[in-house]
């Protein structure tokens, strides 16, 4: 089992990022780093700025100030799809699947983006050479079995329930072989059992594949099961950071969450 390398010289370095909406400061000079293979949880009450920070990292929003560096590259000016190609995979809070494609097609699309993008895809299509090769199918099959979707591989995702769609998103992100996975509230809309399943898959992947994970999550049980380190935000700032049990014992965190003095 590979242990996290810690935050020094991290994979993702967020430095002094601020973002405000019409005068309201949502994220206020936040520093955050995720090391290679490390799993970090980002938690905090509603309105703490977690989602805003998250969207700045994956490119949905452009920060007003500060820098976001991934693998030594400044991300701030890159569009979301370019960030994905650098090796940042992500899952979404409101699922973003392609309803008419089958589960296997989701993975094949991601695989083609990763391995055959920019080649003469159109010409291959027109000459009927677009069928997936044994190698591609093997790769996809590997991810499917890892996530446990083999039986459902040929079902269009429109026919699947939400929990399974989350796994499809996860599998789709994994095909891209990301070095960092951004997971945005993977438990939202799931019941307890499904949450546990997603959590266990995430943790297993992080441990066995050395993939770094940045998890934004409300469900603290899930956070505890997945992360090495937790970062707590409140009112746009980081208020605490450290191992899960230590952080949860901290005064500021309990106040942010429970409002207890």
């Amino acid at each position: 089992m590979r242990r996290p390398t810690g935050g020094i010289g991290g994979l993702l370095e967020v430095r002094g990022v601020s973002k405000s909406f019409g005068g309201r400061v949502a994220v206020d000079g936040v520093d955050l780093s995720v090391g290679g293979g490390e799993s970090v949880g980002l938690v905090g009450p509603n309105g703490a700025g977690k989602t805003t920070l998250f969207n700045c990292i994956c490119g949905q929003l452009r920060p007003d100030k500060g820098s976001i560096v991934f693998c030594g590259r400044e991300l701030s000016r890159l569009s979301p799809w370019r960030r994905a190609r650098l090796g940042i995979g992500r899952t979404f809070q409101r699922i973003e699947v392609f309803p008419e494609l089958t589960v296997r097609d989701h993975l094949l699309v991601a695989d083609r983006v990763r391995h055959r993008s920019g080649r003469a895809n159109l010409w291959r299509d027109l000459s009927n050479r677009a069928a997936p090769s044994a190698e591609e199918l093997g790769r996809v099959e590997g991810v499917l079995s890892m996530v446990g979707l083999v039986e459902l591989a040929d079902v269009p995702v429109a026919a699947l329930d939400l929990g399974t769609c989350r796994l499809v998103e996860l599998a789709r992100a994994l095909v891209g072989e990301p070095s960092l996975l951004l997971a945005d509230e993977p438990s939202s809309g799931l019941d307890e059992r499904e949450t546990r399943e997603v959590a266990s898959v995430l943790r297993a992947l992080q441990l066995t594949r050395g993939m770094a994970v940045l998890l934004v999550e409300h469900d603290l049980a899930m956070v505890e099961a997945v992360v090495d380190r937790v970062v707590v935000m409140d009112l746009g700032c980081v208020v605490a950071s450290g191992a899960f049990a230590d952080v949860m014992a901290e005064h500021a965190v309990r106040r942010a969450y429970l409002g207890t003095a």
Partner: peptide, 24 residues
């Protein structure tokens, strides 16, 4: 049925999702 069509179908299904896996 080919690669381009699947990329386009992905874009139609969810632009955010397609960008998330690196579709240009």
């Amino acid at each position: 049925r080919g690669t381009v069509g699947r990329f386009l179908a992905a874009m139609r299904g969810s632009e955010t999702g397609a960008a998330g896996i690196g579709v240009n």
